[in-house]
């Protein structure tokens, strides 16, 4: 009987822990602990949970650089990075307040805000769209229009806005659409196969396997801010100063990562052993020009309005306004970390 009771208690505890840890697996290497610069004990730091939408890779390089160099601690912050995956709905989690911040795509912010979600963009990692279509070098298709008018088999995430935009522009009636799983086996084995990719992920793996491939970038047709850090609305309203320090430390982390990614990639690889340091170094070089901006991470209202108009034109959102989608914390008055 005691065994039964303890088993039931254990199961209840497990269920509770699963519910309370809805944000997923926590990173071992967060900014917790006493600061080397004398910022005080971890208990005095302001805690921020950051839900990733993918596993630790160079696309989050600046965040890991800020952690490794103690930039968050120096800003009085304890940033808890929570690893993601293709199945983690990071935008929905931050929209309902399950975590303070999360990595999302620009279009998710506009879409969820219109469905009652409370999330606001505060930092854009990619100023230019890193999404594209990966294909063998020998594939005769040269443009997005040629691809969309062909009868190629294309692996893509169904439901993403760029699919509707390409459909509206080029039709795509003959295209055979299959789900993107991220696996490369089919592409490697099938010369005519095309798959959606993140420019610093799948193409790097293919290149390291010695396969000649190229990427048709989506940027000319669809160019939203990508890998945007979104904050939960009520949290942002109540913690604007904290969010400002977080954004600035993240921007500085990215500046350092851009200067010397090889210094930080071993730390990221420790969080994601599936990706080699060599692959991370290559990825960091590929993504460099898509991230560059001054300061890194800043967004403009004009870009958000442009995105809203594009999404509205294909019926993804009911209006064409980018109002409220982001908050520019770079222009706010300089803040200092609170004394411990």
């Amino acid at each position: 009987m005691r065994t039964l009771r303890s088993t039931i208690a254990g199961l209840l505890a497990l269920a509770l822990s699963l519910v309370t840890s809805a944000c997923g697996e926590r990173d071992a290497g967060t900014a917790a602990g006493p600061a080397p610069g004398g910022q005080g004990e971890g208990a005095s730091l302001q805690r921020i949970r950051l839900q990733l939408n993918w596993v630790p890779e160079p696309e989050f390089g600046g965040i890991y650089a800020a952690i490794q160099d103690g930039l968050y601690r120096d800003a009085g912050l304890e940033v808890e990075v929570i690893k993601g995956s293709a199945q983690v709905p990071s935008a929905q989690l931050v929209a309902q307040g399950a975590c303070e911040t999360a990595i999302v795509s620009g279009d998710e912010i506009l879409t969820l805000r219109r469905k009652g979600g409370s999330l606001t963009g505060i930092f854009a990692t990619f100023q230019r769209n890193p999404t594209g279509f990966l294909m063998h070098e020998a594939n005769p298709i040269r443009t997005l229009e040629e691809l969309w008018r062909s009868d190629s088999t294309v692996a893509l995430d169904p439901g993403l806005p760029f699919v509707k935009i390409l459909d509206a522009k080029y039709g795509g009636d003959r295209l055979k659409r299959v789900p993107a799983t991220g696996a490369l086996a089919t592409l490697l084995a099938t010369p005519g196969f095309v798959q959606q990719c993140f420019i610093s992920a799948e193409p790097v793996e293919v290149r390291l396997r010695g396969v000649k491939a190229r990427v048709l970038g989506l940027e000319p047709v669809y160019n939203p801010y990508t890998a945007v850090i979104a904050a939960h609305g009520p949290w942002l309203a109540a913690n604007r100063d904290v969010a400002t320090r977080f954004v600035r430390a993240t921007s500085e982390g990215w500046a350092r990562y851009q200067r010397d990614p090889q210094r930080y990639n071993p730390g990221i690889a420790a969080q994601n052993p599936a990706m080699s340091i060599e692959a991370m170094n290559v990825a960091a070089e590929i993504q460099r020009e898509l991230v560059d901006s001054s300061p890194i991470g800043r967004m403009t209202a004009a870009r958000w309005d442009e995105l809203a108009q594009q999404l509205h034109s294909v019926g993804v959102i009911p209006d064409a306004s980018g109002d409220g989608a982001f908050e520019d914390l770079f222009g706010a008055a300089p803040t200092q970390a609170p004394n411990p």
């Binding site: 709905p89 935008a91 929905q92 969820l112 995430d157 439901g159 055979k176 299959v178 789900p179 993804v316």
Partner: peptide, 20 residues
């Protein structure tokens, strides 16, 4: 599952999830 007009329920679910 094939997407577009040939989508089965699994793809409809994936698509609808992406579109919130």
């Amino acid at each position: 599952g094939y997407g577009g007009r040939d989508a089965p329920l699994g793809i409809v679910i994936l698509t609808a999830m992406r579109e919130a």
